[in-house]
Nucleic acid binder design. Sequence first.
DNA 1: CTGGATTGTTGATCCAGGTTAAGGCGCGCC
DNA 2: GGCGCGCCTTAACCTGGATCAACAATCCAG
Lengths: 237, 237
Amino acid sequence: MRSASLCVTCPNRELGFCGALLESSSQSAADELPNWQRFLTARAGDQIATRNQTSGDVFVLCSGWAFRFLQLPDGRRQILNFLLPGDLLSVVTIFDKQYQFSAKAVTGIQLSGFVRSEILARCKVSPGIQSAIGRCCVEESRVAGELVSVLGQRSADQRIAYLFLHLMNRIRARSVVRDHRYPLPLRQQLIADAVGLTPVHVSRVLGLFRDRGICVLSDNVLNVLNPAELERIGAIG
Amino acid sequence: MRSASLCVTCPNRELGFCGALLESSSQSAADELPNWQRFLTARAGDQIATRNQTSGDVFVLCSGWAFRFLQLPDGRRQILNFLLPGDLLSVVTIFDKQYQFSAKAVTGIQLSGFVRSEILARCKVSPGIQSAIGRCCVEESRVAGELVSVLGQRSADQRIAYLFLHLMNRIRARSVVRDHRYPLPLRQQLIADAVGLTPVHVSRVLGLFRDRGICVLSDNVLNVLNPAELERIGAIG
DNA sequence: CTGGATTGTTGATCCAGGTTAAGGCGCGCC
DNA sequence: GGCGCGCCTTAACCTGGATCAACAATCCAG
């Protein structure tokens, strides 16, 4: 019961991967896990995947926030994206048992793991899963391309505004947002690692946004006071 | 005959997508195109795809160099990757008829287009195609992640060294390279757009590499004099 | 041969963001 | 309470790369 209900209560509405997978399975007894699925939890800060590690499971984030990243030899890291409930760790984990990235939990999280071979088998018989995987690939590729162009071409305030707008969209896809207040459990260090700036400069830019009445990030809530201005700064062509 | 022989003579050896597709098809008469395939050429500089445009075809580059990019509102562009013979324009064009990127030819090129619905149909019956698509997705995602971390975290010389090393690997996968001389038909402006620098600064860094006896790019050939040093500068963790 | 376009080089100057450091605030723990 | 530890903020300074500008080299078109 645990994993199924968790996945049903927090599907990724944009992509619907988890939903497609579950719909393709016959209903199992309400209080036991099918043998092709397992369930994990991790605490804030725990590393949940490591580059070059292999795993027979494909994981979906059921609750909490996490992120994928690449570690550099000098100790710095680049965050590739943040994972929200309903997200696959990465859609390519369906095709490759070896992780090409590392991942950590931002908050406490719950993960649902599906046996890869089971997904691939279902894929052959279920057009629903197949197209869900296709949509995930398209989305991951689109987001990665956007991030490349933001990191390659845009200034500090544009990068941070872009990150906020991107996350705001993803949060809105999952829950109703009131008064432009978005739950955002991110330390400035994480924002820095995501947009390729130092924490010091992130603090400066956030201070600027605050002073200009654009948005305020505190207590894990992003309060957007002037959405139009944020959009103007962070929108990508 | 044209398209088939071209694809067979320049398969992407890393990924083998084109080969997998062709192997799955019954041999057609040697001098006519099957109706699910067509063949295009473009001249250097031609735009071969535009963001948000839709197409019923999935294209493979058969000869020449091209690149995918995102255009920014201010006129700048970020190159997402360079396309070498055998590359799909992007693997996600198999799943989405709408391009999420633009693309241009660097040199004169030849493209082979496959009707998308035909690929998807073959996918259902051919495990070879399915796994080739999977491998393409893994590779595209890995390369995109690396580029994100390079743009987010690394200095100008590291970025350019990384680009060179990355392209050298891809060129070596396609043809024998003698004396560390790699064919590289790139203007400095393209290198700049790929690594997020200005052409002026690219020139300075290339000058530095030349002075330090690391490598020389001229006449569309990259002559690598000190591979170890280039590797030291550009290697990612 | 000449004029113009394209590309690359080099120098001078500027500035966005990095670096370093110090201090403040909140919070858990002894 | 006091103390240590994260985290944020702010200030002073530095620097890598952008910007601006001049010029050389190459290649065509006429």
